[in-house]
Computed example of a mutant assay.
Amino acid sequence: MKAVLLDLDETLFDHRHSCEAGLSAVRERYPDLQQKSVEQLEGQFYLLLNEMHHAVLQGRMTLEEARLERFRLLFHSCGRDLRPQESQEIADLYSQVYAVSRRSVPGAVELLTSLRTRGVQIVVLTNHMTHVQVDKLEACGLTALVDHLVTSEDVGVQKPDPAIFRHALQLCGARPHEALMVGDSWSADILGAQAAGIPAVWLNRRRTPIPDAQTAQEIFELHELAPSLNLYLNL
């Protein structure tokens, strides 16, 4: 195996941890949200984030517009309509706490370090704006452990389009069977890898039912990947 392709958010970067920290801070300051638990808010915010994320990547919204709209809709679901200035203040509070709470997913540093010692190229393959993902890698101390960062912004297409996977393979000089994709999104990471002919491992940290056990191996934590790596590396 020449290369391992890894998603960033919720695979190497613990987005959920930072998100819950940010939402907890907002919920504590604004009682309107206290009718819902942090877990309920995070679940709703996760759906809004995915919806807005696609709009941003497609150029239908700016990153800032999406940031404010998420909170407007979140508060509206709790019976409060925010004024524009309130949306800005809430979004700023969330972003500040999110930033200081950034961390890698447990096992990420150990996994990347192990791959590098074995001479395997590491590619982070992500649907996001490049500067945002560069900042996350730096904040988590992962930059020096990554050989290539491939973003949908730079390539011009998003996962699950096979073209972005082929671009990553070209950077590594690897053929599909010489690589492995690891990610948390079934639709973007697993089905995208399948379309590109790349074996895939689904990191299911939310422990949702696997759509098709024949399509990819399932793990719940990154440290569970070690036996599979030994198999792929023929060790």
Results as ranks from 00 to 15, higher is better:
residue 1 M to N: 05
residue 8 L to F: 12
residue 9 D to N: 11
residue 10 E to K: 08
residue 12 L to G: 06
residue 12 L to E: 04
residue 14 D to L: 06
residue 14 D to H: 14
residue 23 L to V: 00
residue 24 S to G: 09
residue 25 A to T: 01
residue 25 A to K: 01
residue 27 R to M: 05
residue 28 E to W: 03
residue 28 E to N: 07
residue 28 E to H: 10
residue 28 E to A: 15
residue 31 P to H: 13
residue 31 P to S: 11
residue 32 D to S: 09
residue 32 D to F: 11
residue 35 Q to F: 03
residue 36 K to F: 09
residue 36 K to G: 01
residue 36 K to S: 13
residue 41 L to Y: 00
residue 45 F to C: 01
residue 45 F to R: 00
residue 47 L to W: 00
residue 49 L to T: 08
residue 50 N to H: 08
residue 51 E to Q: 12
residue 52 M to N: 06
residue 54 H to R: 15
residue 61 M to G: 05
residue 62 T to M: 10
residue 64 E to Y: 13
residue 64 E to M: 10
residue 64 E to S: 09
residue 65 E to G: 11
residue 68 L to I: 05
residue 69 E to N: 02
residue 71 F to P: 02
residue 74 L to P: 01
residue 79 G to C: 05
residue 81 D to R: 10
residue 82 L to W: 07
residue 82 L to E: 10
residue 83 R to T: 10
residue 84 P to N: 06
residue 86 E to L: 13
residue 86 E to F: 06
residue 88 Q to L: 15
residue 91 A to D: 04
residue 91 A to E: 05
residue 95 S to V: 05
residue 98 Y to Q: 14
residue 98 Y to G: 03
residue 103 R to K: 15
residue 103 R to C: 13
residue 103 R to F: 09
residue 104 S to A: 15
residue 106 P to V: 14
residue 114 S to H: 13
residue 119 G to T: 12
residue 123 V to R: 04
residue 125 L to C: 10
residue 127 N to G: 08
residue 127 N to R: 09
residue 129 M to P: 00
residue 131 H to G: 01
residue 133 Q to L: 14
residue 135 D to M: 12
residue 135 D to V: 01
residue 135 D to E: 15
residue 135 D to F: 07
residue 140 C to I: 04
residue 141 G to R: 09
residue 141 G to P: 00
residue 142 L to R: 06
residue 143 T to A: 14
residue 150 V to K: 06
residue 158 Q to C: 10
residue 159 K to F: 11
residue 162 P to T: 07
residue 162 P to N: 10
residue 163 A to F: 01
residue 164 I to S: 03
residue 165 F to T: 03
residue 171 L to P: 04
residue 173 G to F: 09
residue 174 A to M: 10
residue 177 H to Q: 13
residue 183 G to S: 10
residue 184 D to T: 05
residue 185 S to C: 10
residue 185 S to H: 13
residue 186 W to T: 03
residue 186 W to F: 09
residue 190 I to P: 01
residue 190 I to N: 02
residue 190 I to W: 04
residue 192 G to P: 03
residue 192 G to C: 07
residue 194 Q to S: 14
residue 197 G to M: 06
residue 198 I to F: 08
residue 201 V to L: 12
residue 204 N to V: 12
residue 206 R to G: 00
residue 206 R to M: 09
residue 214 Q to R: 15
residue 217 Q to V: 15
residue 218 E to I: 10
residue 222 L to M: 11
residue 223 H to M: 08
